[in-house]
């Protein structure tokens, strides 16, 4: 093998800084995506549980459509295609540049331009796509969690005099949440992994920085290996946290 590996150059100097910035961007995009995905997912799940048929049809169509189309197509749709149907005001809003927290700042004499915190229309499209895509999965997980509680629990709590909402609040939800948390966390992990597709639009997250290291420094294999290890570390930390959570907080329910 004639290839000379150069691991030190990959994690220090300019490539190292790029990787760090990419890591921060990945976390930012994923975090915002997770928040919006969760909100959308809860809304879709609630629509699915109502008795008003058009709401149910809408949420079924939503989950089926977004679960069965590739994320990359959705990202490209929101970035290139959606401008045609969105009103001008929203288009203008998306096409500005934003500084995500905290923007340019000075710290200890050093100036930080906050370049990697610049939120472009690309990031906005990617976040919309990630949130919409993941919310379809989250809605299904939530519904499965609530439906896994036997129906007679609801009937029994209604019979003891609780209202419908009280029954959900005090009987169904406390049990359903414990069932739902592990699959939800794995959906969040999927979202973090899927955020790597943002590089297709040129959002400077971890994968993009790895390709940049490849083209500027020729450290193709090393750059991608380090980036892979960073993703792996994120996943392992989160799944370790889930296991701890399961050990301490899961009720051992037997029906």
């Amino acid at each position: 093998m004639q290839y000379q590996f150069n691991w030190i150059a990959t994690v220090t100097g300019e490539p190292g800084r790029w990787l760090w910035e990419g890591f921060v961007t990945t976390l930012e995009v994923s975090f915002i995506g997770i928040v919006f995905a969760m909100i959308l997912g809860i809304v879709i799940c609630v629509l699915r549980m109502t008795r008003f048929k058009p709401f149910v049809w809408f949420s079924v169509a939503y989950t089926e459509f977004f679960r069965n189309t590739p994320l990359l197509v959705q990202i490209f749709f929101w970035y290139f295609g959606a401008g045609v149907i969105l009103p001008d005001s929203i288009n203008d809003w998306i096409n500005q540049l934003y500084y995500w927290f905290p923007g340019p700042f000075t710290l200890g004499g050093g100036e930080y331009t906050g370049e990697w915190m610049l939120f472009s229309s690309e990031s906005v499209s990617v976040i919309i796509a990630l949130a919409v895509y993941t919310s379809a999965f989250i809605a299904e997980e939530l519904r499965a969690g609530i439906f896994s509680i036997p129906k007679n629990q609801l009937e029994a709590s209604r019979a003891t005099g609780l209202t419908f909402l009280q029954a959900y609040r005090f009987v169904i939800m406390p049990q359903a949440i414990r069932i739902v948390v592990p699959p939800l966390i794995s959906q969040f992990l999927n979202l973090i992994k899927n955020s790597s597709l943002a590089m297709a639009l040129g959002v400077t997250e971890l994968t993009y920085q790895a390709t940049q290291i490849e083209s500027y420094h020729g450290l193709a294999f090393e750059g991608f290996t380090v980036a892979t290890l960073i993703y792996l570390a994120i996943s392992l930390v989160v799944s370790f946290a889930i296991n701890m959570y399961n050990k301490h907080f899961m009720l051992q329910v037997k029906y």
Binding site: K193, S196, T207, A210, E214, F224, T228, Y231, L232, L236
Partner: peptide, 13 residues
């Protein structure tokens, strides 16, 4: 724990 895109690049290089 790895994104598919990373694996694709990884095998490519």
């Amino acid at each position: 724990g790895t994104p598919l895109l990373m694996l694709i690049f990884w095998f490519f290089f």
